[in-house]
Design a binder for these strands. Structure first.
Length: 559
RNA sequence: AACUCCAUGGUGUAACGGUAGCACAACAGAUUUUGGUUCUGUUUGUCAAGGUUCGAAUCCUUGUGGAGUUGCCA
């Protein structure tokens, strides 16, 4: 017998454990710092689960801080959607809502502090001159002709920048670090630029704005954040992050730790590409159910719990791998299998007439709401002489492995009766329009008959007279290539032409009229479907969340 | 021969010098009034070469491969 090992932790949680046990910190404070310039996506969900998850586990706190230092790109609309998405994911920042723009005055003061100590200067060079002076990956930079201005002159110029005396781009404030540093970020980075654009919160109070690098670490320090978790592309910024903390009278010493961002196959995650999909109308909007945005997957019917589980499963490392979308779908099915109520719906109807069933008779059968949770009880489903079954559940020339209905064969109608197909009716073009079947009264409720007869399949059905006719949207992955943004080709060339199929005459079990917007249910044998949050009119519109695993389709595909 | 970081089955992730495990995927079988679920089993892995060690996925060296960085974006 060995002692069970404690559940393994990712490298970030190990660092936190060490910091706690060494006494470096006596609590844990993290933050989720989105820029309000777009909608949140699954990549953000990974970061949210990490930061808020750590706060919960360590009984610390996680701040929601909007990194709003670029008025040209940001808007209050995004602030609101971001809050909504985080709440939907199941996390709460409590009283800890902050904006980097709340720190503009303090940041200005600290910029002056740098100038006073000879650690920052106003540069009159334009962007192009600065680029030339920065050098490149192989070559060192050269110092700006304005680098050695006096403290007094810098102070005067910087305050006049604030007063609005200069136009955009005319001057910048730069940290005075090292123009030959091997890390380009350290070659006198710009820390303030002039932007005469109203800010969504501070209006026109400012016309100079701090850069990300001059804002983030200081904001962390002001909020007493202990561990500032960000993605790998900020690795090269860490020396700068620390340089500012070293040269400024900050109240605390946060630590930046980087982890790999989320990559998923068959989708794109970059804000730019998602924006392009929206703007060029490849999708219906940010919350199109095919989008990897939080609002998109919510509308698609993915449960928040499934997203959280998924994020737990993929873990936190520094390895930039690509996660398989099937892992996400598996998390979604796991939750939905447990929670979703079952109903019957026929997507592609084929009429069946039970010739030996009385014409005006209607029976009601009891059907289990969820076999995974019998306490939920049963529902009543009407049955009559004319029904719809799924076109895929009938084949005229059926292969041996086809278990469903074919002429002369018998199947079970779920919870109803066994039926045998006697005759196929076709139109002039030879299309199958109707099936004539007979039922066995002894199999009432779907029970096995006393003669020991066996049936290989149970199929779903809807009574024609009682059916609700409605729209169902079948969503599939947006891209047909595993890595749409890889290589030279345009990601738009990889769009899956069949990512949306709209069915307008699906036949639903009448109980489905009562499902509220946003709820995801199972259409038996087909998949999980969610009532579209934007559906209007008398009948709900259903979105396919994800199909059921389908081993028949797989076997059939192999030929 | 710029700097920094990364490398474990098909994919992702554990193993903290001592039996390479888990999930997803795939494949087979059992159960099943959903070809779903559940259960059982199978296949597949430490980038390479040296070194340290009784013992290396783990430590060291070198190499190979990949990623990020040359915004007045974040």
């Amino acid at each position: 017998m060995s002692i069970p090992r404690p559940p393994s932790k990712d490298f970030i949680r190990e660092i936190i454990d060490e910091d706690l046990s060494s006494g470096k910190h006596d609590g844990t404070v993290t933050r989720f710092p989105p820029e309000p310039n777009g909608y949140l996506h699954l990549g953000h969900a990974k970061s949210i689960c990490l930061n808020f998850g750590i706060a919960q586990e360590y009984e610390g706190r996680c701040h929601l801080r909007f990194d709003d230092t670029n008025p040209a790109k940001e808007d209050t609309e995004y602030v609101e959607s971001i809050k909504e998405d985080i709440k939907w994911l199941g996390f709460d920042w409590g009283d800890h809502l902050y904006f980097a723009s709340d720190y503009f005055e303090k940041l200005y003061e600290w910029a002056v502090h740098l100038i006073e100590n000879g650690n920052a200067y106003v540069d009159d060079q334009n962007a192009e001159e600065m680029r030339a002076g920065r050098g490149d990956l192989q070559n060192p930079g050269t110092e700006s002709p304005f680098r050695n201005r006096s403290v007094e002159e810098n102070l005067d110029l910087f305050s006049r920048m604030r007063e609005g005396e200069f136009k955009d781009g005319e001057k910048v404030l730069r940290a005075r670090i090292d123009m030959v540093h091997p890390n380009l970020n350290m070659r006198d980075p710009v820390i303030y630029r002039i932007v005469h654009t109203p800010h969504h919160r501070t209006g026109d109070a400012w016309c100079i704005y701090p850069m990300y690098d001059f804002t983030h670490g200081q904001s962390d320090a002001l909020e007493y954040v202990t561990h500032s978790l960000c993605t790998l592309e900020f690795e090269n910024h860490r020396p700068l992050y620390e340089w500012f903390l070293d040269h400024l009278p900050v109240p605390s010493r946060p630590r930046q730790i980087e982890f790999a961002r989320l990559n998923l196959n068959y989708t794109v995650m970059s804000k730019r590409k998602l924006l392009q999909l929206v703007e060029e109308n490849y999708v219906s909007g940010w919350n199109d159910p095919r989008m990897p945005t939080i609002s998109g997957i919510r509308r698609r019917g993915y449960p928040a719990e499934a997203i959280r589980n998924f994020c737990k499963t993929i873990g936190i490392t520094k390895f930039k791998g690509t996660n398989d979308i099937t892992l996400l779908e598996s998390s979604v099915r796991e939750i939905l299998n447990r929670d979703a109520s079952r109903f019957m719906a026929v997507l592609k109807p084929l009429k069946v007439v039970i010739t030996n069933y009385p014409e005006d008779q209607v029976e009601e059968f009891e059907a289990v709401i969820n076999p995974e949770n019998p306490e939920l009880g049963t529902r009543k489903v009407p049955f009559s002489r004319e029904l719809y079954i799924e076109q895929d559940d009938f084949m005229e020339d059926a292969p041996k492995k086809f278990f469903r209905l074919t002429v002369g064969k018998e199947v079970r109608l779920r919870c109803a009766y066994w039926i045998r197909c006697e005759e196929v009716i076709k139109d002039a073009e030879g299309n199958i329009t109707e099936l004539r079947c007979t039922y066995d009264p002894e199999t009432r409720g779907g029970e096995n008959p006393s003669d020991g007869r066996k049936v290989k399949a149970t199929i779903h059905w809807v009574s024609a007279a009682h059916a609700l006719n409605t729209e169902v949207r079948l969503y599939d992955r947006l891209f047909s290539e595993e890595a749409p943004d890889a290589g030279e080709s345009n990601f738009l060339d990889c769009l899956n032409p069949d990512s949306l199929e709209v069915i307008t005459d699906a036949k639903l079990e009448p109980n489905l009229a009562r499902v509220p917007k946003g709820e995801t249910v199972q259409f038996e044998r087909l998949g999980y479907f969610c009532v579209d949050s934007e559906s209007s009119g008398d009948l709900p519109v259903f979105n396919r969340t994800v199909g059921l695993r389908d081993s028949w389709a797989k076997a059939k595909g192999k030929g």
